[in-house]
Write a protein that binds this DNA or RNA. Sequence first.
DNA 1: ATATGTGCAAATGCTTTGCAACGCC
DNA 2: GGCGTTGCAAAGCATTTGCACATAT
Lengths: 145, 145
Amino acid sequence: MQRNTRQRTAILETLSRQDDFRSAQQIHEQMRADGETVGLATVYRTLQSLSQAGRLDVLVAGDGESLYRQCADTGHHHHLVCRECGRTVEFLAPKLESAMTAIAGEHGFTDLDHTLEVFGLCAEHSAARDAGDAGGSAEDEARPR
Amino acid sequence: MQRNTRQRTAILETLSRQDDFRSAQQIHEQMRADGETVGLATVYRTLQSLSQAGRLDVLVAGDGESLYRQCADTGHHHHLVCRECGRTVEFLAPKLESAMTAIAGEHGFTDLDHTLEVFGLCAEHSAARDAGDAGGSAEDEARPR
DNA sequence: ATATGTGCAAATGCTTTGCAACGCC
DNA sequence: GGCGTTGCAAAGCATTTGCACATAT
């Protein structure tokens, strides 16, 4: 129930070369730039199926856009993401998990699920901002939102 | 820089009578049902300005829709939300906050911000499910998504 | 008086879908 | 050969925006 098509392979390959969280559109755009011929709808459909299969991590940005990334850790984990460049650090927070489970239990909640994502500016970009990067240079093109 | 219009007042009043997280459209719909005459765009604009002013909590649902709620705790806090009925419990997690700050710091990240929301089934609805409520009754109308 | 807020409808932007052609297995 | 997959364009949705009109202060 999941065939190995040229497109599917190309998408996986593109993702494996990518370290940041990227939107479906950005991934599609990059593939076109790399000479791949893939329809945008296919990218959407494939990313969706891959994430459902647990082979991809999804992050819903503040504006509702979905961002995808192939993570090193295949289990449950969280992310520290740079708002400017999308640079991502994966981390675990076991104490936090148990604390949440406890709180939920106290209130009679079951069937839990949670989202925890941290956004900020990575070392490189917080430095740039300190230096007075008020006017936003030519980085508009590169940011993963 | 923020006038007291009939619409603004009505929206605040509606929110104060509401205990669950609701989307802009649901709030608008309810207001119409209550006999209020307010444009949808106004609801969107007002909810946005209120949340920016910190008078409202916003939650981005999994599908990207924004949900609003007037919370008791005006400071920083998190939510435990029932997937079925939207019932919400506010909670604090100070240890968790510092743990995240620490992790972010280790990686050189600054200007932090984070999202932490827990979803699950409240006592009432987890019981209903256990009882074999597979066919979903007439509750479709009431759920805040 | 005048800066703001409002309403409507059109425009946006991301994502999904219908459907015929296509290509793995 | 059959059934999942692809592509394109159209459709869907939540949200935003332009603009003329209304209205708080």
